[in-house]
Amino acid sequence: MTMGSVKTGLAILCAAALMQGCGDDSHMAMDAGEDHVHTDDVATDGGADAAVDAGSDVTSDAASDATATGTAVEIRFEAAVGTAPFSCTTTFPQMGTSRATWTPLDFRFYVHDVELVPATGAPVPVTLDQDGTWQYRNVALLDFENASGTCSNGTTATNAVVRGRVDAPAGTRFTGLRFKLGVPQALNHQNPAAAPSPLNLSTLFWAWQSGYKFARIDGRAGTNAVNIHIGSTGCSGDAMAGTVTCSEPNRAQYALTGFDPTTNVVVADLAALLATTDVSRDQGGAPGCMSGLTDPECATILPAFGIPVGSAPATQTFFRVR
């Protein structure tokens, strides 16, 4: 009734606002979770749309309930470089605008607020298994480096699957997937020195912004280091008092269509992510893109994640369905 229309209205407003690239707190209602405006205009052969979550507290009680019941689901991810599977023991040619050869160093990212979209009806949240390692509350770490080869600063353990349960009848046919990049606001600014796994990995700490690296995808093209560290920026406030707010939350929100968890996987494609970036030379700012709004490399990398820079709308190219 009123509630539904309010949410839909806000969602449409937000979608419109998003196209203009605004990313402040007026987007709080993006989390309403009932709108289909992003998916309806996208082809069903694995199209994707991205929006940016403004970083509101989206940690629902349901999503953090370790004793949840329901139908078990697995959301499988895959790291790729174009058509090749990602690996730490090989290099990848023809990357970016300068067609450079990429030496991989790292490939990890957090996701949260995972939802499956049934053929009919509203999206249903995936309540994550509280496995004590890869998943905590509503956030999961996907880790595609295994510390071998050139990924020497990584971890041997890997994870490519989000596991959880949905409150939907067994046999429900799902046709879409929604999730957000990174660590939710409610967990992002807690004390990482005392955080549970997977929020206790120091390579994913981002202490200078009092938060975490949502994505860490590092590599080299020749001698040029390209460190892709996505996280919330413009943060101020008192982390221990829980009052940190960030002007750029950078939590891209994805809506993938044509996704059935029993047959499809989500492909995170590094070649697509870097397609419009010159990886062979750094044009300024941090080496690569550390989420700086004025960093030349971020001007192409952030939008590829679905994070707008300035007024230009962003269409994510990183994730696709296979």
Partner: peptide
């Protein structure tokens, strides 16, 4: 946003 010494220590360490 870096307000506590406990949190600041993480910057030089990591």
């Amino acid at each position: 946003s870096v307000r506590q010494l406990e949190r600041q220590a993480l910057v030089p360490m990591f």
